[in-house]
Design a protein around this nucleic acid. Structure first.
Length: 796
DNA sequence: GCACGCATATTTTTT
DNA sequence: ATATGCGTGC
């Protein structure tokens, strides 16, 4: 198949009319720099494209696909393009469609995991599963591990399911299955892990399930054990392209090599400076050593070093930072863009002050005409999002938190999905255990234990064991309960068979199992939230159904299994809040990199040199997301765990070329950010730069002096306190918690009119707790009842 | 068997 | 501070 290609020369036009290939070539020559063009046109054998941040990488990949089709003559379905996230895959598909139109639909563009899933579905029987197998996520896996470890009598204190899960992932990334000779065996805990690993593997097989790692590892296994299958796919996929190659682990790069075969028409694109998944098994060596890994073959290397994204100063800041790393391909980005503004570095007292500063800059940007969806706030960990959410909500600015609370991970949502999975695959013990008491149906631990015993005695799934149990003469009450449950599931299976539509099955699940009635009965606020979530799930099934031609239960389950919260698309004009990890591959006009403190960013768990370099790469990724403006910020003290931590400014701040930075602080003036000497204790100093509080809604006419200075002086009391004091008008018409004694005689508040920045005016129905953190239930005319933390309300 | 209440760990990043 | 897990009482 090597000679399938005779590339480099476009197909000759038949007539004098320009062929699509010629048009494309002209277009490429006009719009691409020489390196990009080189990357697009080089199509024989292995190619490494070292694509610096903002160097037009996605453009190269999509145009390369177009070129392969238009000029080289490949059929779209002969191209495989792999990325890491669904989001990146979606963008690639979209942009390829712009170039190729409908034909792009035949190109397989997917994530590593979706590609693996697809292959495994096709050949399930060769890897010890039936085609109905399911995919276990982290949660399912830990449940199954818990079950397995219980059976093995492994003490959870000694080895937690979570630890076991990490262990399994570590081994899987190295392609070591259970029983592999290289599994660590020195310590007693290693032996326990190995034992658990083997038992877990068996349990997965019995449950007809794969976990995330399996999607890669078992695909590799499939290919290695069944060369004809591998040949089949190698023959189909003539060209393989990979994005974010720096984040591949050993199993993934091995899989790629298998797929590429002897022809090795494999193009990997990546940037070692942006590698950030070490903890997930990513091995930077995959990209660093790529040129040397094809014995006897020349590996072409193209470097994309021209940055089209960021202003000069931003690039300078990023480059000066990343230069501190040692393990990297040498390269230097350049741009023709002007230097642009200096990068402002803000020193706040508390994370609340940091958030308010970000908010102020954000409002300034909005006034200047920057659309909100071009603004992003980055932080190292999810938990940092909250303060920003608080201030944005106060200001009624729309925002999206990427990641964080994951819709598909909510309990009730997972419950419904577990029902679907169980209907689809009754051997799925994890799903069964999940739904068995939702709603409660009189099947308790005792009964379940007996069923489980039957199951392990006969080597069958719990569901099958239930049938045996029903035939036995065990206690009649539990037997009836089990029978009823089995009947429900069987009934649902009939629905599924009669009507293969996922939506119909989901509806039947809600009705027939009593799940809908059960959550309807719960009148608490959480219950209401749960109902809303289930409604939203049904809605999302409908949406999915409208978009897809394959509406089967299997298709839906696959779709959901691989979904992540990163996939929700930014709708409309909203500020984006996300972790730095989630930011990879994106760009924004304006970027805030927050929490630049030691212990936070770099993270306290990353002290070791290699880990620290990864943290630095993360900071590099963050900064290079910005097109026009980048703001950096840190807080002297930060709430964490309920405690107040005082941290030094991040070492990264000191590593950036100081000539592009413009330091400022909560109390005015500029200040060096090396060492704690930079800190003054704010209690006594009068703020010379106060945040522009007049911008906060409903604060016009507040007294000067008061709130801010007060909150600064008690900085350690935390974000909620300071944001409350900032938001509370100092006189008159506020919800004055202390005076109205919400806790004790809080009745006074009930019935009063209040205003919420987003929901508008409403009437207080109920107050729980006291002080600014009291939970106040308010009835709003438009949105109905909501429970809101007191500090976000204002009395009228 | 189930609901409620208290205690505990949890926070790095994700397919 | 919050979510989850475990124990106790109905």
């Amino acid at each position: 198949m090597d000679d399938f290609f005779d590339i480099g020369e476009p197909i000759r036009p038949l007539a004098s009319m320009a062929s699509p290939a010629e048009v494309l070539r002209k277009d490429l020559e006009r719009t691409m720099n020489p390196e990009q063009l080189n990357a697009v046109l080089n199509n024989q054998g292995p190619l490494l494209v070292l694509a610096g941040a903002g160097s037009g990488k996605t453009r190269v990949i999509t145009h390369k696909i177009a070129w392969l089709v238009e000029a080289v003559g490949l059929m779209p379905w002969q191209i495989l393009a792999v990325t890491f996230t669904n989001k990146a895959a979606a963008e690639m598909r979209e942009r390829t469609e712009k170039l190729l139109g409908e034909r792009a639909k035949d190109t397989w563009i997917g994530t590593f995991h979706s590609t693996g899933l697809r292959l495994l579905r096709r050949h399930a029987e060769l890897v010890g599963r039936t085609r109905d197998f399911v995919v276990y996520d982290q949660d399912d896996r830990e449940r199954l591990l818990g079950k397995v470890m219980k059976e093995l009598n492994v003490d959870k204190e000694y080895l937690s399911p979570k630890k076991a899960s990490y262990y399994i992932d570590d081994q899987a990334h190295l392609l070591r299955g259970p029983g592999h000779p290289e599994l660590p065996m020195e310590l007693p805990i290693d032996k326990t892990c190995a034992k658990v690993y083997a038992a877990y593997e068996d349990a997965k097989t019995r449950a007809n399930a794969f976990d995330f790692s399996d999607l890669i590892v078992k695909t590799v296994q499939l290919f290695e054990k069944h060369p004809p299958v591998l040949s089949e796919w190698q023959y189909k996929w003539r060209y393989v392209m990979v994005d974010e190659f720096q984040d591949t682990d050993r199993a993934q790069s091995h899989l790629l090599r298998l797929l590429a075969g002897d022809a090795a028409n494999l193009c990997v694109v990546g940037d070692d400076d942006q590698s950030s998944y070490r903890w997930r098994g990513a091995d930077v060596r995959n990209i660093l050593d790529f040129p040397d890994t094809f014995p006897g073959r020349e590996v072409a290397v193209v470097r994309l070093e021209r940055n089209y994204r960021s202003m000069g100063n931003i690039l300078k800041a990023a480059s000066s930072l990343i230069r501190r790393n040692t393990a990297r391909h040498d390269k230097s980005l350049w741009t023709e863009k002007p230097a642009g503004e200096l990068i402002r570095v803000f020193a706040a007292e508390t994370e609340g002050g940091e958030a308010r500063w970000v908010l102020k800059q954000l409002l300034d940007r909005r006034r200047a005409g920057t659309p909100l969806n071009e603004v992003a706030v980055f932080y190292r960990t999810h938990s940092q999002s909250r303060v920003f959410e608080d201030v944005l909500r106060m200001e009624a600015l729309p925002y999206i938190v990427v990641g964080g609370l994951k819709f598909y991970e909510r309990k009730e949502v997972k419950d419904v999905l577990a029902y679907l999975r169980l209907v689809h695959n009754p051997a799925d013990d994890v799903a069964l255990l999940r739904v068995i008491d939702s709603p409660p149906r009189g099947i308790g631990d005792k009964t379940l234990e007996r069923v489980a015993e039957l199951g392990s005695a006969t080597g069958t799934s719990l569901f099958e064991a239930m049938e045996l149990f029903a035939q036995s003469r065990e206690g009649s009450r539990s037997r009836a309960a089990i029978e009823r449950f089995r009947g429900q599931v069987q009934g649902l299976r009939v629905v599924a068979e009669r009507n293969a539509d996922a939506l119909a099955v989901a509806r039947a699940v809600l009705e027939d199992t009593g799940f809908a009635d059960w959550i309807k009965k719960d009148t608490t606020l959480e219950g209401q939230g749960r109902r809303e979530n289930v409604d939203e799930l049904m809605l999302s099934i409908e949406e999915w159904r409208a978009r897809n031609s394959d509406r089967s239960l299997t298709a839906f389950i696959d779709h959901v299994s691989l979904l992540t919260s990163l996939d929700q698309d930014a709708r409309g004009q909203a500020v984006t809040l996300m972790t730095v990890h989630a930011a990879k591959g994106l760009e924004f006009d304006t970027v805030f990199v927050t929490g630049l403190e030691e212990e936070v960013f770099p993270h306290f768990n990353s002290k070791e040199e290699a880990a620290l370099e990864e943290e630095r790469r993360l900071a590099y990724v963050a900064i290079t997301r910005g097109k026009e403006r980048v703001y950096l910020s840190y807080a002297r003290s930060r709430q964490r765990f309920g405690r107040t931590d005082v941290n030094m400014p991040s070492r990264f701040l000191g590593e950036i070329d100081p000539t592009v930075l413009k330091p400022e602080s909560e109390f005015g003036g500029s200040r060096a950010f090396s060492g704690s000497a930079g800190w003054t204790h704010g209690a006594t100093s009068r703020p010379s730069v106060r945040p522009d509080l007049s911008t906060l809604q409903g604060l016009a006419g507040r007294s000067t002096g008061g709130g801010w200075a007060a909150s600064a002086s008690k900085a350690s009391s935390g974000s909620s306190a300071s944001s409350a004091s900032a938001s509370r008008p100092s006189h008159g018409r506020s919800l004055d918690y202390a005076d109205s004694q919400v806790g004790g005689g809080g009745g006074e508040l009930v019935g009063r009119q209040v205003v919420h920045p987003r929901f508008g005016r409403g009437k207080v129905l109920k107050v729980e707790g006291n002080g600014e953190d009291a939970r106040v239930t308010v009835k709003f005319p438009m949105v109905g009842e909501k429970t809101i933390i007191a500090r976000f309300l204002q009395a009228v």
